[in-house]
Design a binder for these strands. Structure first.
Lengths: 230, 230
DNA sequence: CGATTCATTGACTAGAATCAAATACCGTGG
DNA sequence: CCACGGTATTTGATTCTAGTCAATGAATCG
């Protein structure tokens, strides 16, 4: 999640698999979605699935962006990850979803029955390996995020976030389009909306970034951000 | 990880698989370790593997306890999870370990070559499903932990920790044996050692727990802890 | 153009971190 | 068995980062 480079690859791969490979044999997860999946549209803030619901489907973002989150009883929210086109979600094993998922803006999502994917995976080593790899990728994202939430300062969190959003391949001067609002960013970074806003302003003051509009950020000093990112 | 009930099940399952199942077919991950794995002992604080090292093996804790962690350049540490007997670790896909792993106390670990497990999994639907399930279990633990790190107060974090350590089946009056020191707990919960200590003392003051010794805690008011856990 | 939502800024507070010291614990050797 | 040294833990005083409360400003949409 959140790895834009990988997301781009996955997106690029998606259409190519519409040309079915000659052999009926090995498929990857994206190809399995093409075979078994259907599409569905969601409006801004619409729930895709809820925590505790039976986990019937796997999902792949086609367009737009998705957030997954957990709530405490008093409404405090932690966003676990943002999902961009190509990313898979709902891969957690277990009969029930451990997170809720919502559309950030209007978006399209491919979905496929878990049982179908799993049945196919049981017979297809490549597919099962890809399912595992996708899950493990989520796990690594979560582990990286634990370090951020447990040990980084507000400024370091925002810098990490911006660098992740700008992608690995990004260069100084790149303009980042943020699909999510400040509250989403705050709940993702374990901060308040005010702290996120102040930190953006402060980073602009040090010429690390430029706030073109609230949803558009230009990276002006990439290595400065990376230094903050430790 | 950290799910003592599940850990106990895994441990219980382990010896039973020494009796090879009649059919050579499906195996679970624990059985695969029995077939392919070897054992190794580690001393207190000894490194099992390091972040960035090639991920050659999968591991399963046999006795003792293991911590996985990441460091920032200035030494700040985030412990991602504690692993108890029966738990698997090192399941992250990718050529390199994303975390470091160390023995908390003297411990024994089963290990098996990744390539062997993966080869076997490619031909064995049950094994590959179990590999995926074990990875997904780690993922759910990580997601739960993100909520703790991002949104819970110090008292809530410590209460969550104690409830997790006491196991799902625990009852009031249960005595928890903590295998790790205060610094490990602090780095796991995203707090300082002083805050952990003060919170323990405060929970004792409210009769929620009793500190028998620094490594032994008795739960006196389980529902009180659960209320804090939200 | 007004209404509403979202973002920024300011003043003040609080919860956890930091700095510092005292106490408890543990293994070793006399 | 007890004294010693080293480590781990607890406790206290103070600071500081981020949170809270409050108000203003900007953007978006009928």
């Amino acid at each position: 999640m959140f790895d834009q480079a990988a997301a781009t690859i996955a997106v690029a791969r998606f259409p190519s698999t519409t040309v079915p490979s000659a052999q009926a044999g090995p498929h990857d997860l994206a190809a399995a979605f093409k075979m078994l999946g259907a599409s569905m549209s969601f409006e801004r803030n619409e729930e895709i699935y809820g925590e505790g619901e039976p986990a019937e489907y796997f999902y792949q973002v086609a367009t737009g962006a998705v957030r997954t989150y957990k709530l405490l009883s008093d409404g405090r929210r932690q966003i676990g990850a943002f999902y961009l086109p190509g990313d898979f979600l709902g891969l957690e094993a277990g009969a029930e979803h451990a997170f809720s998922a919502e559309a950030i803006g209007n978006c399209t999502v491919h979905y496929a029955k878990r049982s179908n994917i799993l049945t196919m995976a049981a017979r297809d080593g490549v597919l099962s390996a890809d399912l595992w790899a996708a899950t493990a990728k989520s796990l690594r994202g979560a582990q990286e995020h634990m370090l951020l939430l447990g040990r980084k300062t507000a400024e370091e969190r925002v810098a990490s976030f911006l660098l992740n959003m700008s992608g690995l391949a990004g260069r100084a001067g790149d303009v980042i389009e943020l699909p999510m609002c400040r509250q989403d960013i705050a709940d993702y970074l374990g901060l308040t909306i005010e702290t996120v806003s102040r930190t953006f302003t402060h980073l602009e003051g040090t010429s690390a970034i430029e706030l073109i509009s609230s949803r558009r950020v230009a990276v002006r000093n990439r290595s400065g951000l990376q230094r903050l990112n430790s």
